[in-house]
Amino acid sequence: MSTAASHAATPAPSPEPDRRDTAQGRSAGRAWTRWILKRLGLAVLTLWVVSLIVFVATSALGDPVRAILGKDFAVSPERVAQIRAAMHLDESLPQRYWIWLSGLLRGDLGTSIANGVPVSELIGAKVANSAFLVLVVTLIMVPLSLGLAILAARHRGGPIDNAIQVVTLALAGVPEFVTGILLVSLLSTSVFHILPAVTVLPAGAMVWQRPLGLILPVATLVIAVVPYLARILRSTLVETMDSDYVELARLKGIPERLVLRRHALPNTLVPTVQVSALQLAWLVGGVVLVEYLFNFPGIGAALVDAVRNGDFPVVQALAMVIAAVYIVVNLVADALSILLTPRARTEMVA
């Protein structure tokens, strides 16, 4: 043992640079403020570009008046002129965009062409209904996926794992309205007549007052999002269970239960958040077909109606709502990911 034992006696004057970041409370707060401001700026910029695209797609491509009047377009020119004036259609495109955008910024979403009601009034309840639907689906999706992933990872290679893998793989690609139709025909028509096939609400009621009508839409969306999420989480979990630090934990004699809970699961939180956000963002669009199928009084069905009626103020408003939700969900997911990753969290402050 000739290697200079003298070095051990005193704490070694570390020749390696000490990578500790001097994280002070105040500078952490400042770093977070800077990060949030930067991301908010970026989000606003994105939303602005989104508004441009939405406006161009809805206003510039087609002729809304022709769409509204249909056959009347050719026979009543005075109606045409009247509507054109009401919708500022004689102004230039940039001016119309400005009128729309400034209204948007004031919270004025415009007036529905189909029935002359302010758009905000028209979609308010529907946004709440859809938000409730998505919320319920999310609350089921995350624990269910995580549970399936843990179950599969703990029995890796066994029959339980294989069964979960086969079922989730088969379901992962099936379109949501296909699943929905199959569920309807199974549970509310031919085979069993248990659940209502469509959501019928008395005027003014909200969806949560008729929970039975929620079951099929929720089930359809859950089946649409859970398989993919569960598969991703299972593979992350399996990868973590194969990592060096999990092996070390086992070699330290830590019981498997604790290995999973303390060593493996915390390191799968970030992928869980990220992929859940991805699925959540998908859900906001995915509700369209499902709501249409079940006549669910939400933004999806409203969007389809508005598109069919050429009610472009409603289309614009709903498109902006959906894009905004996507942007916010991503922002929150990124912030959570940083908070949950010690490395990202401490380095952001540095």
């Binding site: 797609a57 998908w282 906001v284 598109v307």
Partner: peptide
């Protein structure tokens, strides 16, 4: 690309359909 990703695919479809009936 991130901006384009903010449009769910079904929304892209519906936006185009609102213009092209």
């Amino acid at each position: 690309n991130d901006v384009l990703l903010a449009f769910p695919q079904i929304l892209v479809a519906l936006l185009v359909l609102s213009a092209v009936r």
